[in-house]
């Protein structure tokens, strides 16, 4: 078995195979999600649940996987930029909402930072962990630099951003339904503020307006959080 794995590993470690694997598994995830309509079965989760054990089993390290699929990671940047177009298409809906949008995201940012720090503290987290958790709701590049500035671990902060994105993407639509929110702007704003681009990916599924507002929320949340985190340090 080990001999066999050693023989095939170089082929399985190629860019062609790993990219095909990611897209294939994600496609499978889409089919499963569409067939079952179970919220928990997000294509991203399905892909992670299949790929992580696959890498462990075949002995391909994460560095190799990341190197060979980095084109996908790179595409995160352009996809955020492209939200500028979606926002332009939806601008008519935003007019007259500027003050409410800024107030809502500012309040959300305060609540998000304070609650994550206090909850972590309650469960015995240390300062390093709290500093890495505080910027969890913003996109990875902002979160990493904020965590660094306040004495957190950048790699951990990046992991928490992903966790927060997956969780918010999963439960966000359920929470919004539960509290009976009807406004499309409110829904998109909440998804993007709490769970950055992953929340936006889910908001895009709700509709173009929700998606556009969610994209806008990523930016506003990032700026507000960057301004608020220095004050949050007093809580650590």
């Amino acid at each position: 078995m080990n001999d066999f794995l050693n023989t095939v590993r170089p082929y399985l470690s190629t860019e062609i195979f790993l990219l095909a694997l990611v897209l294939g598994v994600f496609y499978l995830g889409i089919i499963i999600y569409q067939k079952t309509k179970i919220t928990l079965l997000q294509p991203l989760l399905t892909a992670m649940v299949i790929i992580i054990p696959f890498l462990i089993f075949t002995g391909i390290d994460y560095q190799t996987f990341y190197q060979n699929t980095r084109i996908l990671n790179f595409m995160l940047g352009p996809s955020v930029v492209a939200l500028g177009y979606v926002l332009y298409e939806q601008i008519g809906h935003i007019k007259g909402n500027v003050i409410s949008i800024l107030t809502a995201v500012f309040t959300g940012s305060v609540v998000g930072i304070v609650s994550v720090v206090l909850l972590a503290k309650l469960f015995g987290a240390d300062k390093i962990l709290m500093a890495s958790l505080a910027p969890k709701s913003v996109t990875t590049p902002i979160a990493i630099s904020l965590a660094e500035k306040t004495g957190g671990v950048p790699a951990l902060a990046a992991a928490f951003v992903v966790l927060c994105g997956i969780f918010g993407g999963l439960v966000g639509p359920i929470v919004l339904r539960r509290i009976g929110v009807k406004s499309k702007i409110a829904k998109g704003l909440a998804m993007g503020s709490a769970s950055h681009a992953l929340g936006t990916a889910r908001a895009m599924e709700m509709g173009a307006l929700e998606g556009a507002i969610s994209g806008l929320a990523i930016g506003i949340m990032g700026i507000m959080t960057a301004l608020l985190i220095p004050f949050a340090e007093n809580l650590f």
Binding site: N97, I99, S100, I101, T103, A104, V105, T107, G108, S109, V111, G112, S115, V116, V117, L119, A120, L122, F123, G124, A125, L129, L133, K136, S137, F160, L163, C164, F167, G168, V171, G172, V175, L176, I179, V181, K182, S183, I185, A186, K187, L189, A190, M191, S193, A194, S195, A217
Partner: peptide, 29 residues
């Protein structure tokens, strides 16, 4: 190592953020 703290903090805070932002915006509207 700190799984409980991390999961509770992220889950709780994410839900609170979603509720806060959505309700503030909807109240304005």
């Amino acid at each position: 190592k700190s799984l409980a703290a991390i999961l509770v903090a992220i889950a709780g805070s994410t839900i609170l953020t979603i509720i806060t932002v959505a309700l503030v915006q909807e109240n304005f509207e």
